[in-house]
Every structure is written in C-alpha cells, then in structure tokens.
Design a protein around this nucleic acid. Structure first.
Length: 270
DNA sequence: AGACAAGCCTGTCCGC
DNA sequence: TGCGGACAGGCTTGTC
C-alpha cells in the first residue's frame, strides 16, 4: 500500500530511466481504473519526451510538452521500469513504451489507482484541491494549529484529510500520533498549539525517515517485484493492537475512526 | 464462506 | 435557504 514515502521512492526510482526519453507508444489493456484511462490523450504523446518526473501528494507526474500524465497508485498499484522482454500479467494494465527499449508498466490488482491527463498550463482538479506537502516549510505547527481551529473531527481523521495536508495515510497517521503522544480520538480543535507543533514535527520525521528506509530497501525495486519491506521494522503501533506498547508495556488499544483501524496507547497518548 | 484492508472521492444529512 | 462539516458508502481483489 503505497503511502507518500513509497510514492516518492517510486518517483526517484523511475526518474533516471525515463527522463529525456521519447515515448514510442502506449498500451492500455485495462482502461477501467478508478476513472477511465484517457486513452486518446495518451496515444497522442507518441514522439514526445519526458521532461520531468515530479510528485505532488501521492501523485506522480510525468511532464511532457503537451501536459502531464498523472499517476496515482491507489493502495495496490505499482509502477516499474521493465527493460527486458516480459509478458504482461493479469493486472498489468498500462505500459508506456520508450524508444530506447524500456517501458514503464503500471500494475494495480484492485484498480483503486488512476491515470489522468493534465493539459499543459492547467492544474487537474484532483491536484488543485490538495493541501500543502508535509515536508514543505508551509506545513508546520502554526499552520496545523490554524487549520484545526473549530474543527470537531478527530485529530487522526483531520491529518489524514488531503485538503489539510497530503500524503498522511493510515499507517503514518497512527505512528505520528503515537510519537507525538496525542490520543487519536481527540477533537482537532481541542489540542494546544504546543502539541500541534510537536505533531507537525513528528509527521515530518516519520515520513522522511520512511523515505530514507524506502530508498535503501527498495533501491533495486525497479527489477524486483517492488513490494515494500521497509516499514514493518520501525512501526510502533500500526498493526499491533492487543500487543504491548513498546514504550510502557501497556496493551495497545484498537478502535475504528472514520472506518479506519486506529491503534494507540492509552497511557502514552492523551 | 465471508470479513477485512487500503485511498479517497462522492453523496447525504445535519446544524448553524 | 444556503453552506460547510461530518460521516457513511462505494469501488476492487487478495488474504486471512
């Protein structure tokens, strides 16, 4: 399940293989992803080259002179560089072929992901409504505090709202709240600025350390199966409901917030 | 077999 | 009446 760190790892992993490369064709085997794949627009890209590979939230953008291909991995998607002859499997929905013989293969068993088209000079609606990047200067305790004002929703659901800040999925929301010592059930509007400053710091640190780990563990993901293995080791709470807190030993609680599994320590988080 | 997990968009309902 | 916020539902398929 790609969260921001894995999307960033994917971005940096594919970048050197496709930057400056000319698109020679696009193969669409399954156009029915979260939204229909813009087949027409993608086919018109033949002959154009990739100018830049950037990330915005959990989207990867492949920039060309005509516009950008937006790729979202959903929860089960992956994007791999294929440099040898390898026949497509059941869930290999889209290939972007390059003239130097390499192709980018989009795979997504559950098809929660998306491939969208953003014409040059425009900003796709999906991206236009996104909040700031968690690792940018714009996102800090002061910003978080201002956004939280008057909001009754739980702090966990709040930080997972992509209009507030992008890229904080269920795993890292649980972890950041644990590290900040904040009860995930607490209303966003009822948390002091001081504690929100700490939360913003923890969101940044947990994401950036995951990017670093992703970078090392997945450095050869391009020719492997791309499955992440990096996060399991450093998780304090996610997936550990009913097990002892690693800090104090008390059994971790598990509840559902916004239909999402939420694990926390009743002693360490208040 | 059926429940569950995931990201995140959309529709509906609520209260000011 | 309008509007934003809160929340449930839906999509999909592999795994338990």
């Amino acid at each position: 399940m790609p969260e921001l760190p894995e999307v960033e790892t994917t971005r940096s992993g594919i970048e050197p293989h496709v930057i400056g490369r000319k698109i020679s064709g696009v193969v669409i085997r399954q156009p029915q992803l979260r939204w229909p794949v813009p087949e027409q627009e993608l086919r018109e890209l033949e002959g154009l080259s990739i100018k830049k590979v950037v990330r915005r939230g959990k989207y990867i953008l492949l920039n060309t002179d005509l516009g950008s291909i937006l790729i979202h991995l959903g929860m089960s998607g992956s994007l791999r560089v294929i440099s040898d002859e390898r026949s497509a499997l059941k869930h290999d929905h889209v290939d972007i072929q390059f003239s130097h013989g390499v192709l980018l293969r989009y795979t997504d068993p559950r098809r929660f992901g998306a491939i969208l088209w953003q014409p040059k000079g425009q900003t796709h609606e999906r991206i236009a409504s996104l909040g700031p990047e968690p690792l940018s200067e714009q996102f800090d305790g002061c910003y978080l505090h201002q956004q939280c004002r008057g909001r009754s929703v739980t702090i966990k659901q709040f930080i997972m709202n992509s209009k507030v800040v992008v890229g904080v999925g269920n795993i890292y929301a649980n972890e950041a709240l644990f590290q900040a010592g904040i009860d995930p059930r607490k209303s966003a509007g009822r948390i002091s600025e001081k504690r929100l400053v700490l939360l913003a710091q923890r969101i940044k640190s947990v994401l950036s350390s995951a990017i670093q780990q992703g970078g090392t563990t997945l450095k050869d993901f391009v020719d492997s199966d791309g499955k992440p293995g990096y996060f399991q080791q450093s998780l304090n709470v996610y997936g550990r409901g009913g097990e002892p807190c690693l800090a104090c030993g008390r059994i971790l609680s598990e509840v559902r917030l916004g239909q999402r599994s939420t694990v926390f320590c009743n002693d360490c988080q208040r």
